[in-house]
Amino acid sequence: MSLSFFAGWVKGQWTFTPPVPTTTYTGQTVIVTGANIGLGLEAARHIVNLDAARVILAVRTLKKGETAKTDIEATTGRKGVVEVWQLDLSSYASVKEFAAKASKLDRLDILLENAGIATEKFTLLEDNESTITVNVVSTYLLALLLLPILKSTAATTGKKSYLTIVSSEMHFMTQAPYLTSLPPTTSIFATLNDPNAKYQSDRYQLSKLLEVFASRQMVDDYMSNPDYPVITNFLTPGLCKSELMREAGLKGTIVKTAFGARTTEVGSRTLVHATQAGQDSHGRFLMNCQIRDVAPLVESEKGVVLQRRVWEELSAKLEKIQPGILKNF
């Protein structure tokens, strides 16, 4: 992370308060993943309060989702709007089952992909290390599986749909030297599956970098036409007092205190903003409710090559999980 970016980020943490969202979602259907706690819960609460017709909380544990639903209904006074659906991003079968169900909705205006994990414990889930499976592969598997209904909704309503992915400014904090130096024939994803690799502590940051690569490249390859019916963007909510850093313990508490961590309600306003941002946000990174440049590595000569490699490998992986998925663009 460059000194200038870090200074600007710290200043933003302490001096910028994301505005309370006021634009309504009247008539819209919205899916929020990871919506039983933290940023996802608060974003869903805002969206319900702003007159959405149907808000689906996509959660791993249904009981926790029902608790979140009750809480949202109590605070917004709106019942019959929130639904709780099961989604486990550690399982490709679960993602496909959820997407099959969601594809039968009469409309889907917004897919807000908030769910993710941060862990320093090495575990394989499906065919990758857990952070990569959940934050990257399953996130884009769900996105591509739901592109058809997002596109058809836009065609029906005459208004562009949204695919918004919660990423992080942490993608500035990995230079991924072990990836940029890999021979062209060596698989990036397979390299990250090595349990003896010494980079597990960097895995969350790296997963966010891979999200940036994937979002940018899929827009370049398939969604660059200004008339494309789905706006896709990716954002950081900034440092928040969420459960994401729970494994960090005291260290995490100190970091949050030192850098002015936002409440999850305040941070969630950035998620809501992204689902209403303009066409100029398409394929772009949002921070503090503004379009910002991505990390220098991403636009460097090595980054351009790495971005293409990441997307080619991810695309092949997604095609293997769900043959024909790239036709959904």
Rank of each mutant, 00 (worst) to 15 (best):
Q205F: 13
F98P: 11
I31W: 05
G77W: 03
K256V: 06
S315N: 09
A190T: 15
N193K: 05
D194G: 00
E113R: 06
Q276K: 10
S130K: 13
T23H: 04
T264F: 01
W14E: 05
D227C: 07
Y140D: 07
G80I: 02
L306P: 08
S138Q: 05
H273A: 12
T139S: 11
S90V: 11
F98L: 12
A143Y: 03
N135P: 05
A277E: 10
E42T: 07
I165H: 03
G252P: 12
T164H: 03
L314S: 06
D71L: 12
E312S: 08
E120T: 15
F6W: 14
Q279V: 13
K302R: 03
K320M: 09
F172A: 10
K302G: 04
T123K: 15
Q86N: 14
P21Y: 02
V82F: 02
V30D: 03
P226N: 13
T26M: 04
F16K: 14
E66L: 13
S215K: 08
F234I: 05
E301C: 05
T26N: 11
W85E: 09
T29D: 11
S161D: 01
K160A: 04
Q86Y: 01
V137Y: 01
Q13T: 12
L144C: 03
T131Q: 14
T75R: 15
E319H: 00
M245K: 13
L141Q: 08
V137R: 06
A248S: 15
N288G: 10
E66G: 04
T156D: 07
F285Y: 15
A143H: 10
P296S: 03
F259Y: 14
P18D: 13
K327F: 01
S268T: 02
W85A: 09
L144R: 12
I291H: 08
F213H: 12
M170Y: 04
A44V: 02
Q307L: 05
T29A: 12
I165Q: 09
I31P: 07
D293Q: 10
Q322V: 10
V30M: 01
P21A: 06
M218S: 09
G116W: 03
A214E: 04
S4G: 00
T139A: 10
L192T: 07
S152I: 07
A52L: 01
L145F: 00
D51K: 13
Y162I: 00
V137I: 15
L3C: 08
I149N: 04
A93H: 12
P18W: 00
E211Q: 15
T264W: 00
K160R: 09
V48K: 04
K101N: 14
A155E: 04
N328L: 00
E42K: 09
G158D: 05
V134I: 14
N135F: 02
R203S: 15
P148L: 06
S90W: 00
E299N: 14
E247H: 13
Q217P: 08
Q217E: 15
V82D: 04
T70Q: 14
D106A: 14
E299S: 11
R203I: 14
N233G: 02
A74T: 14
Q290I: 01
R78L: 13
H46W: 08
C289V: 06
T123V: 15
P148A: 06
R216T: 15
V294R: 11
D221Q: 11
L145P: 00
T139F: 00
F189M: 11
S138P: 06
E83N: 04
